[in-house]
């Protein structure tokens, strides 16, 4: 077991983790943050996307120990029913949510894009979302939702 310190959704944590323990397992099993989903376990689907030190990563490909000293944002740290993040609002209103399993990862990829680039082009949106697979909605509404959220952010 090794001791790591993390800030997750603005709360500091000290955890004892196994050296081979993945970050997704630490988040889900130790912190109960179940909004982070595992779809493939090999960094292909992006359902486990979180934001680590300002960058999106697949939490199934990162060891918990590697995240020592990092600042993390999971879906639980983004918006709430009283004040949803513009990305979340746009996803609901546009109809970009169907089965919803890819949604937390999608929201985090979109949020991270807009945090860095408030005026993304369609190409930039496509690239930013290209690490998140979706099997239901066909991406069309997802990309549109990100665009709408970006436009709302500008106002």
């Amino acid at each position: 077991m090794i001791e790591i310190k993390l800030v997750v959704n603005e709360k500091p944590y000290t955890l004892n983790v196994e050296p081979s323990e993945r970050l997704i397992d630490a988040l889900r099993n130790r912190l109960g943050l179940l909004g982070t989903k595992e779809g493939c376990g090999e960094g292909e689907c992006g359902a486990c996307t979180i934001i680590m030190d300002g960058k999106t990563v697949n939490s199934c490909l990162v060891l918990a120990a590697q995240a020592n000293g990092s600042v993390l944002t999971t879906i639980e740290g983004v918006g709430n029913r009283r004040s949803p993040h513009p990305v979340q609002k746009a996803f609901v209103e546009v109809g970009a949510v169907q089965c919803g399993f890819c949604t937390p990862g999608m929201v985090l990829s979109a949020k991270n894009l807009l945090d860095k680039n408030s005026h993304p082009s369609e190409t930039e949106i496509g690239i930013a979302m290209s690490g998140n697979l979706c099997r239901c909605t066909g991406y069309d509404k997802i990309l549109r939702a990100v665009k709408i959220a970006a436009e709302e952010g500008k106002q």
Binding site: E44, M129, S130, L143
Partner: peptide, 19 residues
């Protein structure tokens, strides 16, 4: 039997769809 070898379309593989 994996998403790295059984490939489904990504956001960049899907064109504009007019419905």
């Amino acid at each position: 039997p994996a998403f790295s070898s059984y490939l489904i379309p990504t956001a960049l593989d899907v064109p504009n769809i007019e419905a």
